[in-house]
Design a protein around this nucleic acid. Structure first.
Lengths: 153, 153
DNA sequence: CTCTTTACTTATCATTTGATAACAAAATCC
DNA sequence: GGATTTTGTTATCAAATGATAAGTAAAGAG
């Protein structure tokens, strides 16, 4: 009865791309979540793992950068980073040029942990694209480049 | 030549695609997070919003489906859904064919809330791709389709 | 009809995360 | 040199989320 207008409100008829992007984004999230499932050590909280991931890719980083990029407040960032440091997974080095700033890097143990995590992720990804030919991979590379440049910048 | 098709176990990131995918995935997450920032009503927790989003796209859904898809336990799913129902944002309808199951849909208020959210998201997305030509959009559509079919399935 | 399984609920507790106030040290501004 | 801004810390509190145990009602199996 009051089943009013049809659902499938996935779009916005302005842009047919929009619906496609929504579905695509959901798929990317889904796959990313599948592929990274259980890679993190049990002693890490999800946020802590994310932080390590970010440090691993962007090191050295400052606390403020982590804070901004991960959308968390400085106090909370500081707290989590302290825990990571206590777990010996990362190290803070005071910038000699500006001694307020701290360059944060992974410790050797942190490097190893994240190295293993990325290896697992890489293996799972390889499985997923195992069956693809060189030509297909080339196309995928181009598609990724295109989307990143024009949409996900 | 070191071609794919054989499963080389020492895989990790000798696939140049892997690094590209990592960066791409990060970019997608970043943009998605930017674009959906603050679209949710202040009365919703992040998880509750995610659930509503899922219901909106997939309704009607059962509790178990939400539970599985969102990676949360049945008790917790039940709790959050109860809160959403109390907030009048969704409705449970017992399946007459199997009265254990509950089809969950958005209530009119829920439809409206999510409709507005999607509209905002759509507008922000439009801004982002505003400057693109028809030809570019067509290419993007193709790229999305390719990636979704071959990588993010 | 009893036994088991499925789908979900309720209650409870621990942990994680978010938010805010108050502080400190180094750099920068004037 | 004193005020201000930047960068980070510590402490505390509230809320959100996760985990688990125990229960209910309906469906299905034998």
């Amino acid at each position: 009865m009051n089943n009013n207008n049809n659902n499938n409100n996935n779009s916005n008829s302005d842009s047919p791309l929009f619906g496609q992007i929504v579905a695509f984004t959901a798929a990317v999230h889904q796959v990313a979540s599948d592929i990274t499932k259980d890679v993190k050590s049990g002693t890490l909280t999800p946020v802590q793992y994310k932080i390590l991931e970010y440090i691993a890719v962007s090191q050295p980083v400052t606390l403020s950068e982590i804070s901004e990029c991960m959308h968390m407040s400085m106090p909370n960032t500081s707290r989590e980073l302290k825990k990571l440091t206590e777990k010996q997974l990362c190290a803070k080095v005071t910038d000699p040029a500006d001694r307020r700033k701290q360059g944060i890097t992974l410790s050797p143990a942190g490097e190893q942990m994240m190295g293993e995590a990325f290896l697992t992720i890489g293996r799972r990804f390889e499985e997923r694209i195992m069956h693809l030919s060189d030509e297909e991979r080339r196309e995928i590379g181009l598609a990724l480049e295109l989307l990143q440049r024009k949409v996900f910048y």
